[in-house]
Design a protein around this nucleic acid. Sequence first.
DNA 1: TGAATACTTAAGTATATGCTTCAGTATTTA
DNA 2: TAAATACTGAAGCATATACTTAAGTATTCA
Lengths: 102, 102
Amino acid sequence: MDADGVLQALGDATRRAMVDRLSRGPVSVSQLAERLGITLTAVGQHLAILEACGLAVTEKVGRVRTCRMGSAGLDALERWVREHRSEWERRADRLGELLEGE
Amino acid sequence: MDADGVLQALGDATRRAMVDRLSRGPVSVSQLAERLGITLTAVGQHLAILEACGLAVTEKVGRVRTCRMGSAGLDALERWVREHRSEWERRADRLGELLEGE
DNA sequence: TGAATACTTAAGTATATGCTTCAGTATTTA
DNA sequence: TAAATACTGAAGCATATACTTAAGTATTCA
């Protein structure tokens, strides 16, 4: 899973609301739609994006699709943060050493 | 700094490229514009967004504005990840205990 | 002091995308 | 088996926003 897709997905407020909800446990497409005040179709579209980047996992049983949080998306995001922070902090450290050396 | 703003900001590929660059050290607006192949104006607009959410800090000295990475943005983002992951993992743990109890 | 540099601001354009409706399909219930 | 439920897919619309040009301002250089 690449962080680009995750960040692109989480750029949208509705999808963030969906992830908020998923982090508290599984839900059906209908339940998401009702909570967000949008159509089932819209939820389906967002869900496809969340699944593609590993933020959600879904499974259809009978006529109802159950949606859960996916670990891969959060993993990728955390990795992205660490990489960007560390590069920048390494620089900050070198600057600190430089100043101490004076 | 709220994670919403940070995620909204990082939803855009150009701004992600800017943050990539900033994480490797300070740059001027012109240098960013050249690297990204867009106008100074466009860079300025993105920069305002990155500053507002704490992903960038800028300082104008003479006629050149120098842009650096901001810590607040990454902090907020890491917090967001931890909160969403932990809630979901607590649930997974409870499920695990439940299954063990059978 | 005049020219060049490095932005800044205002205003317009063009496209991406979030959402809708409408018309299906598959599953459950009465 | 008929009606209701829970989605799915195709197609269109409408708005947000990323980018541009054009016209400034402030600073440095020759």
